[in-house]
């Protein structure tokens, strides 16, 4: 079986992991339009080549990032998401003309 190296738990069978989608920065929740949110939630680059994506190690519920080549299925590296997310983001309800519609 293919082996993926989890930054927390070390090398494990691929079957222990769940794919979590492409990594892309979250829009600014304070003033992103509904269109930007739609794009963020539904649309993907779906690149044929090296991509950065989310993976979860199921047994530890641990989310991390991986760089993987989607043509060869080769994983180039895996790393902790603390490198990209290091502060808490609090959401507050925002009313924009689009959400009121």
């Amino acid at each position: 079986m293919k082996i993926l190296t989890c930054p927390l738990n070390g090398p494990r069978n691929m079957s222990e992991f769940t794919y979590g989608g492409e990594y892309h920065p979250t829009p600014d929740h304070a003033d992103a339009s509904a269109r930007e949110w739609a794009e963020h939630v539904f649309f993907h680059h779906n690149t044929a080549g090296v991509v950065t994506e989310w993976w979860c190690h199921n047994a530890s519920s641990y989310w991390f990032l991986a760089e993987r080549n989607t043509l060869t299925d080769e994983v180039l590296r895996t790393f902790d998401c603390d490198q990209l997310y290091n502060q808490r983001i609090d959401f507050s309800a925002v009313t924009t003309p689009e959400t009121r519609k």
Partner: peptide, 9 residues
């Protein structure tokens, strides 16, 4: 070890 045991977490 946090892993899969008999196919469950």
């Amino acid at each position: 070890a946090q892993t899969s045991l008999a196919k469950i977490n």
